[in-house]
Amino acid sequence: MGTLEGKVAFITGAGQGVGQGVAFALAREGASIAVTGRTESKLVDTVEQIRAFGGVAEPIVCDIADTARITAAVERTVELFGGVDVLVNNASLNPLGPLLDLTPGLMAKAYASGPIAALHAMQTVHPIMKERGGGNIVNMVTSAAVRWDTSGYGGYASVKEALRALTRTAASEWGPDNIRVNAIAPHALSPGLKWWTENRPEEAAEFVASIPLRRIGDCEDDIGRAVAWIVSDDARYLTGATIPLDGGQARWG
């Protein structure tokens, strides 16, 4: 029996990359997965792969930029599986580029799909988790704010730092409800990063050389399995933390 047998996980952006890797890992531990995202074909593919190894999953189309759709997706998850025990806020728009290029419109979209969407999802699942005796929330953040040079990453870092603040506050306020809330800052071979490594090999080689473990993490084996531990009872005293899953690259603290 897996460590998450009987649990229900709602994962945003689960059609590919890190979200998909987390979905695979949690499903292998016995959780039923609400695979959510904007592109139905990607969601269906993820669900088919989960079912192929005996897992339980359903695709739910959801654009996190629309809070009403988040609410509807959570309600659909409860209809399908009976509740929500794990929320993974993974999907977001990541604004990259120099500060002078970051338009108000772009930043508004980034905040809407980032901390605002994540907060709404957290607020929506809170009463469900509380009624079930507790739960776990994991928010995806970034080490961009603690890079040696944050040039070109200011907008992205600001969006994720807002989510880190919400993570810490939710952990403080919802601890009495037995709801643990943590953040992870991963480096993983997502489709975007894979494209970058293939098309800019010299930059990628320099990047990998700056990671003490000398490799970029695997979406399932390195990131997903870590999340599976974080939301399991084995980590029941861990909350309010930001955990870097980056092979030791970033310096936090």
Results as ranks from 00 to 15, higher is better:
residue 124 T to L: 00
residue 124 T to F: 01
residue 124 T to R: 09
residue 125 V to I: 10
residue 125 V to D: 07
residue 125 V to S: 05
residue 125 V to T: 11
residue 126 H to S: 10
residue 127 P to C: 12
residue 129 M to D: 05
residue 130 K to L: 07
residue 130 K to P: 10
residue 131 E to Q: 15
residue 132 R to E: 00
residue 132 R to D: 06
residue 133 G to K: 12
residue 135 G to S: 06
residue 137 I to S: 01
residue 137 I to T: 04
residue 139 N to G: 01
residue 142 T to C: 02
residue 147 R to Y: 06
residue 148 W to M: 14
residue 148 W to Y: 11
residue 149 D to S: 14
residue 150 T to D: 07
residue 151 S to H: 13
residue 151 S to I: 06
residue 153 Y to G: 03
residue 159 V to D: 05
residue 162 A to Q: 04
residue 162 A to I: 02
residue 163 L to Q: 12
residue 163 L to W: 04
residue 167 T to F: 02
residue 169 T to M: 11
residue 174 W to Q: 00
residue 175 G to S: 15
residue 176 P to Y: 09
residue 176 P to M: 10
residue 177 D to W: 03
residue 177 D to Y: 07
residue 178 N to H: 13
residue 178 N to C: 01
residue 185 A to G: 09
residue 185 A to Q: 06
residue 186 P to V: 02
residue 188 A to P: 08
residue 188 A to H: 06
residue 189 L to W: 12
residue 190 S to N: 05
residue 196 W to K: 02
residue 197 T to F: 14
residue 199 N to R: 12
residue 201 P to Y: 03
residue 201 P to D: 04
residue 202 E to C: 03
residue 202 E to I: 09
residue 202 E to D: 15
residue 204 A to S: 13
residue 205 A to N: 13
residue 206 E to N: 11
residue 209 A to Y: 00
residue 209 A to V: 00
residue 210 S to L: 04
residue 210 S to Q: 13
residue 210 S to G: 12
residue 210 S to N: 09
